[in-house]
Simulated assay, not measured.
Amino acid sequence: MGPTVRAERGRAAIPARGAVVAAAVRLFTEQGYEATTMDDIAAAAGVSRRSLFRHFGSKEDVLFAEHDARLETIVRYLEAAPGDEPVATVRAAARMVFQGYVSTPDTTVARFHLVRTVPRLRDREIAMTSRYQAAFSHYLTRGQTEGDRVLVGEAVAAAVIAAHNHVLRSWLREPASPVPWARFDRAMELVTRSLAAELSGSGAEPPEAAVLVAVYPSGLGGDDVLRRVREALGEGAD
């Protein structure tokens, strides 16, 4: 079967996303981003021009299609995650993003070089990074808009993105080397460990201190009062 996915009866064929992206990246690398047209991509991917435009509005949309799909996956993952270990959850989500990059090295490396030579692609990548950070921040702050939790949540989200990009850039310089998972995990631990405790637990206010009310007969001596209080506290008498 060619690089299309057969749809159910009565529905139009949908371009196989990975095949279209791979074809586009190859053309961008061989003949330049500006020189490549959507018609060129459609022909190289083996899909109709109409079908390509139905699912990808522009060359930028093709190049960043996997980013958009991955972000949707991350958002669903965060929405379904429990809130008892929020920082660990965000770190796991960042690991999923990293896995997405390193699992397609040919496309990732080519896109890395394209983004650095075409200014508007750089803007698109920055916008995508901001969307990841916003998703992490929203999960960590639980929709709150002010207060300490918001500050800490935004700081953790920014730190996770910075650590992710730092390790990814180092790998992109030597993509033939083993994927640096240990370095990735170490970077995440380094930038989040000091703030993780601030966001752990249910976020509920700490319980008020217990109050002990002691009732004793009037005229009772001080030693007897003290003894009864200690017995009530389970300390026993001296």
Rank of each mutant, 00 (worst) to 15 (best):
F56G: 01
G57A: 13
D61V: 05
L63S: 02
A69N: 00
A69S: 07
R70Y: 08
L71T: 01
T73K: 08
V75F: 00
L78W: 04
L78A: 02
P82A: 14
P82N: 10
E85H: 08
P86T: 03
A88I: 06
A88V: 08
V90L: 13
V90Q: 02
R91G: 11
A94N: 04
V97Y: 06
F98L: 05
G100A: 10
Y101A: 11
V102H: 02
T104R: 11
T104Y: 04
P105Q: 08
D106E: 12
T107C: 11
V109L: 07
A110L: 06
R111S: 04
H113E: 06
H113P: 13
L114S: 02
R116I: 06
T117R: 14
V118R: 02
R120N: 14
L121A: 07
R122W: 15
D123Y: 14
R124T: 08
R124Q: 08
I126P: 13
I126M: 15
M128G: 13
M128Y: 12
Q133G: 14
A135V: 02
F136G: 04
F136M: 07
S137P: 05
T141M: 08
T145M: 14
E146H: 12
G147H: 04
G147S: 06
G147I: 03
G147P: 05
R149H: 02
R149S: 04
V156Q: 01
